[in-house]
């Protein structure tokens, strides 16, 4: 129990640090640092999504960039139609683009959830190393589709020139947009925390630990895993939606397998199956990229070396080192 209390306290400290950093940066008139923190918060959200499948469910998906990109394209396409005053479709009924984030998020979540349902239903027929390769392959399929589909920019990507709107705040101001992303992240984290303790979360972890016993209890491991995979894809899709609004740009590179790998890296750097693991991991990643990227163009070499060291010698990641091992490791 002691470790659990330590982890709770650590989580609260981490949440406060991520909030305080940009507030200080804003007061010091450093808008770039605020944007950097926003990037970290959004990438953390993508990692939180994957952590539901990977950490809780033990489903090593190497294709989560697909959901990230689909969420992004949902926003990019609808927003570009809104800006060009062209309806998305006129038949059988009229659908216009929109610049309202709440609607965009809903569409992004639905699209990525639907994709996760299809990909998950096929991929979860297998397990282990097959599952890794198949999720990777499906993500690559969507990546190549995005590159070769000519309508929305193809390989060049699609720009949306103005950030979309959220009722009551001015999203064009960096701090406002950060606070919005931070709030979304916190809401999802609380939801995941509640879910982990609830029936579904318990069943999901039980499936990871012993599939046979869960089946003997009369539950369907396949359906539990599929539900987790869909929720996981939805959260990562939502992160993709925010990411496009941050950069005002969506391109196939959001779906590349490097991004799938990076989302996984956030989790391992922070700590697998830890609630705040992806948050710490994403912050470390963004900091690493910023610091090393400023003095060498070969920063990815050092990222690889650091990652290798963590995998080989520091299993459990940051939270594992600070708060001790998870109970069911």
């Amino acid at each position: 129990m002691r470790d659990l209390v330590t982890e709770h306290r650590l989580n609260i400290v981490l949440a406060l640090v991520l909030l305080a950093g940009p507030l200080v940066a804003h007061a010091a008139d450093e808008p770039f640092m605020v944007t950097l923190a926003t990037r970290a918060a959004i990438l953390a959200l993508a990692g939180v999504g994957l952590n539901i499948a990977l950490g809780l469910g033990g489903l090593v998906s190497f294709g989560h960039a697909a959901f990230f990109g689909l969420g992004g394209y949902a926003v990019g396409i609808l927003a570009s139609h809104h800006q060009n005053y062209e309806p998305l479709m006129t038949w059988p009924f009229l659908v216009n683009g929109t610049n309202q984030m709440l609607i965009l998020w809903l569409v992004a979540v639905l699209v990525s959830g639907l994709a996760a349902l299809v990909i998950g239903a096929l991929s979860l027929r297998t397990s282990g190393v097959y599952f890794i390769m198949i999720t990777l392959a499906f993500a690559q399929m969507l990546y190549f589709f995005a590159i070769s589909w000519p309508a929305y920019g193809g390989e060049d990507g699609l720009s949306i020139y103005v950030r979309n709107a959220f009722p009551g705040i001015n999203t064009l101001r960096p701090l406002d947009f950060f606070l919005l992303c931070y709030a979304v992240l916190m809401v999802v984290l609380v939801a995941q925390w509640r879910m982990t303790g609830a029936r579904f979360g318990t069943a999901l972890q039980a499936v990871r630990q012993n599939e046979g016993r869960v089946a003997a209890l009369g539950l369907s491991p396949y359906r539990i895993r599929l539900a987790a995979f869909v929720i996981s894809g939805m959260v990562t899709g939502l992160a993709g939606a925010l990411y496009v609004d941050l950069n005002r740009f969506v391109s196939p590179s959001m779906m590349s397998w490097h991004l799938s790998g990076e989302i996984m890296v956030f989790i391992i750097l922070g700590g697998v199956a830890r609630l705040f693991g992806p948050v710490v991991g994403a912050c470390l990643f963004v900091l690493f990229e910023h610091v090393f990227g400023s003095f060498t163009e070969h920063w990815q070499f050092f990222l690889g070396a650091a990652l290798l060291a963590v995998v080989l010698f520091a299993r459990g990641g940051f939270i594992g080192v600070v708060a001790g091992r998870a109970r069911h490791d």
Binding site: L54, V60, F62, G128, V129, I132, G261, M264, V265, I268, V272, H298, Q300, F301, L303, G304, A305, L307, L308, V311, L312, R315
Partner: peptide, 21 residues
């Protein structure tokens, strides 16, 4: 498999940058 994927992904990053170097 997770550790294997991540460690070999790390190798991919190192090799790509190494060859670029």
């Amino acid at each position: 498999h997770l550790d294997q994927v991540l460690a070999t992904f790390a190798l991919v990053l190192m090799f790509s940058e190494g060859v670029r170097f």
